[in-house]
């Protein structure tokens, strides 16, 4: 018995060691592309062509300046555009999804169940399948090369709504709302002054998700924006990809990718804990 237990302990130790090796390998696979990106964004074109390097070069600022002064790629403008679209979407989607969730959570009215089911049903409809009608309608409304078609639709976001609804069920007892009513708070003001502060943690997580998904979005923006000054970062990346590669400065290419990726990555690492928790929370309970 003793011996068996001892061999069991030894087996567990070997197993643990193996598991940690696998985990470290996966971490390397996940991080290697971004490490190469970081290193190569600091090297000049000639060095990059020589191949892989572990150590950074000295051309970081030079690459940055070259990219910023590249007449074909309005990168600064792209960062600005992406930022406006992404933050606009994040603000609208969190506020209005909370409002929609609050309507379903706090009020009893006819057809509530049907409405809730309807919102769940439309959750899975991909934006791509209505893209044709969307682009056509925006053209008729003279909204191409405009940010409104990229920001406003985030008001109706079933996934964010669902998350907010789940959160309200655990964090917003109806008594709090009723107490506000006794104090004479107007319904809309009660939502803004009592409900929203309670929703802060959920809003923070969803704001980050909404910001990144809008920041990363390529399909719809590429159909709506074609004016040089209106393009967002993903469209500029696609433009870079279609450029003649042999003539291109790879230092600038890596710098362009770095600018698109690293800001999101830094914000993620700062708040990663609540994000990772939010992923599990937002899923349908099994």
């Amino acid at each position: 018995m003793m011996e068996k237990e001892r061999s069991g302990v030894a087996g567990l130790k070997i197993k643990r060691a193996l598991i940690h090796i696998v985990l470290i390998l996966l971490t390397i696979i996940c991080l290697l592309p971004f490490y190469i990106l970081l290193i190569n964004s600091t090297r000049n074109h000639v060095d990059i062509q020589k191949g892989f390097s572990i150590l950074p070069g000295k051309a970081f600022l030079k690459n940055f300046q070259n990219l910023m002064s590249n007449p074909n790629l309005p990168v600064l403008r792209g960062i600005f555009n992406s930022f406006i679209v992404a933050s606009g979407s994040a603000v609208l989607t969190t506020y209005f999804s909370s409002l929609t969730a609050y309507a379903i959570h706090a009020y009893d009215f006819k057809g509530k169940k049907t409405i809730f089911t309807f919102i769940l049903m439309i959750m899975m409809v991909p934006t791509q399948v209505s893209a044709l009608g969307f682009v056509d309608l925006m053209r008729d409304m003279n909204l191409t090369n405009n940010f409104i078609p990229l920001i406003a639709p985030s008001i109706a976001a079933p996934v964010v709504f669902f998350f907010m609804k789940q959160y309200m069920e655990s964090a917003l007892p109806i008594e709090i709302v009723e107490a506000g009513r006794i104090d004479g708070a107007h319904e809309f003001r009660a939502f803004n002054t009592i409900v929203l502060p309670i929703m802060k943690p959920a809003i923070a997580v969803q704001a980050i998700f909404a910001f990144t998904s809008s920041w990363n979005n390529y399909f719809i923006p590429s159909l709506i924006l074609d004016k040089k000054d209106m393009k967002t970062l993903p469209i500029l990346i696609a433009q870079l990809r279609s450029a003649d590669f042999l003539k291109f400065d790879m230092g600038q290419v890596y710098m362009m990718i770095a600018i698109s990726i690293f800001p999101v990555m830094i914000v993620y690492f700062l708040v990663s804990k609540s994000i990772v928790q939010g992923v599990a929370l937002g899923s349908v309970k099994g």
Binding site: N216, Y218, L233, P234, S260, I261, V264
Partner: peptide
């Protein structure tokens, strides 16, 4: 770490 690539811009 393993969740991180999910937030990266697919185009980039």
């Amino acid at each position: 770490i393993i969740y991180m690539p999910n937030l990266i811009m697919a185009a980039a």
